[in-house]
């Protein structure tokens, strides 16, 4: 009988863990508020909030702080980040979303894998346009735009978010990048290029 009880308890406990693990146990309380827009899996919501899953932790910390100090201007985010009162809570939230799995990309493309590139957006991504001093996006954002350390992942990010950000860099609603490099590059892009680049990165799955 005791054996059976122990067995039952184990089953009960496992079931509890299984149910709770993905949705609740990992989410730090400070990140609960983020999930309503960014999703419990951190995959974001089109036309509302970007994917955060798998982003570099330092990048996320940096961005939360940019919202706090006004380098990034977005009415809802500006008020949301105020709920993260301490540096520890910022760290916690960033670490949580960084730990969530981002969609995996099967065919990773590195610079040099293709030479003849006719699609203009893809050409910008892998070769840039140096007549306007635009380096290949992949130089900093990595093969297939998967991100490099604190240079964020763009692959499978929502298209509306990417285009909004590029526009924000242009009209200075987003600042705070080291050396002003991204702002300088974004200034060079046309509205149509921004749309195409956004769609290109969003489509990398």
């Amino acid at each position: 009988m005791p054996m059976k009880n122990i067995f039952r308890s184990i089953i009960g406990l496992s079931a509890l863990l299984l149910v709770q693990a993905p949705a609740f146990s990992a989410t730090p309380p400070a990140a609960m508020v983020c999930e309503s827009c960014h999703g419990t899996a951190g995959l974001g919501t089109p036309n509302l909030a970007p994917m955060l899953a798998g982003m570099d932790k330092d990048y996320l910390v940096e961005q939360i702080n940019h919202f706090k100090n006004g380098n990034r201007k977005n009415p809802s985010m500006t008020s949301m980040v105020m709920t993260l009162a301490t540096p520890e809570s910022v760290q916690q939230v960033a670490a949580f979303f960084a730990s969530l799995p981002a969609p995996t990309i099967s065919n990773i493309e590195k610079r040099g894998d293709n030479v003849i590139i006719t699609d203009p957006a893809r050409k910008l991504v892998y070769q840039g346009d140096w007549t306007r001093n635009i380096p290949a996006c992949a130089t900093c954002h990595g093969p297939s735009g998967l991100g490099v350390a604190h240079f964020p992942r763009l692959a499978s990010q929502h298209a509306d978010y990417i285009s909004n950000q590029l526009t924000a860099w242009q009209n200075k609603k987003r600042t705070g990048d080291k050396n002003n490099v991204m702002a300088t590059i974004a200034q060079q892009l046309t509205a149509s290029e921004i749309q195409h680049l956004a769609q290109y990165f969003a489509a990398i799955k």
Partner: peptide, 22 residues
């Protein structure tokens, strides 16, 4: 002030998933 963001604190550059980007 200027270079370490891409080339790292100890000049090691930046690498991700085995690819040295900087």
């Amino acid at each position: 002030q200027t270079c370490s963001t891409c080339h790292g604190d100890s000049g090691q550059g930046l690498k991700q998933d085995g690819v040295q980007s900087f």
